[in-house]
């Protein structure tokens, strides 16, 4: 008896519709988020994640409707992120039916926002989403830097130090996305995942780069993540969530197969 590793399908949502970008460009419209959520619920997903990728501009309120409709139909834990900048945003998402809210650029801009959010709603519902790229050269010690604006803007902030700081401020979980790997299908940045997972006391979700089921196994076994997030391999039907979980169980990872 032990806590099971989680498989979390992630749906990128824009204007209330599902999209998946390759390294966050070339978006392809691929469906209704609520229908996808129901399908993942039925398939045994351990959690679901919505990232509202256009939350910063128009049609911001569409996500609240998507979350509310999803919560009507799905009895699975739901994390929602994208454009979360104010306490009021978090409250609205939680009231709509989100269980956890992920904070990304607002945490970079103002780390105290994370502290305020954690104080208000509890650490357990505050996920800090960290987008980083490897910036060290060949032969140098590994170093990763935080990037914002969908990976286009460097910040000069060290990803490992930032992760530790976010946990101090009250993040209950970290969602680590490697922007180099995202959409490339070559696997997670295992060194990044393990470096941070081994340093922080909170759970870490590995994200960015899954192309096959071995990558999921590596995220948990080698990256020391407690959950693995993937989008396109599930979304385009390459593998089902059930296949992924059975594969991971066959490779020695404790999974929920109810």
């Amino acid at each position: 008896m032990t806590l099971k590793a989680r498989v979390i399908p992630c749906l990128d949502v824009k204007d209330g519709r599902v999209v998946k970008g390759v390294s966050f460009v070339n978006l392809v419209d691929a469906g209704d988020p609520v229908e996808s959520a129901k399908a993942y619920d039925a398939a045994g997903a351990d959690e679901l994640c919505f990232l509202d990728i256009t939350a910063s501009s128009d049609n911001r309120d569409t996500i609240f409707d998507v979350v509310a409709r999803t919560a009507e139909h799905c009895f699975m834990p739901l994390t929602v992120g994208g454009g979360v900048r104010a306490i009021a945003d978090i409250r609205k998402l939680l009231l709509a039916g989100a269980d956890k809210v992920s904070i990304n650029s607002a945490a970079v801009k103002d780390p105290d926002f994370v502290a305020e959010a954690a104080d208000k709603f509890g650490n357990q519902c505050i996920v800090v989403s960290i987008d980083s790229k490897k910036v060290s050269k060949e032969g140098e010690e590994d170093r990763w830097e935080i990037f914002t604006h969908g990976g286009r803007q460097a910040t000069g902030i060290d990803a490992v130090a930032f992760a530790e700081k976010m946990v101090e401020r009250g993040a209950g979980e970290l969602l680590l996305t490697s922007m180099d790997r995202d959409g490339q299908k070559g696997g997670y940045d295992i060194a990044l995942t393990r470096t941070i997972a081994d340093r922080v006391p909170v759970p870490v979700i590995a994200s960015g780069g899954v192309g096959n089921l071995d990558h999921l196994v590596e995220g948990i076994r080698d990256g020391h993540a407690t959950a693995v997030l993937a989008a396109s391999i599930f979304h385009f039907g390459t593998y089902t969530v059930g296949e992924a979980k059975r594969y991971m169980a066959d490779h020695g990872i404790a999974m929920r197969l109810d």
Partner: peptide
């Protein structure tokens, strides 16, 4: 090595 919070699925005794 166990993380706090406990987040996820577990069985009961």
């Amino acid at each position: 090595a166990l993380k706090i919070p406990q987040i996820g699925w577990n069985t009961l005794t």
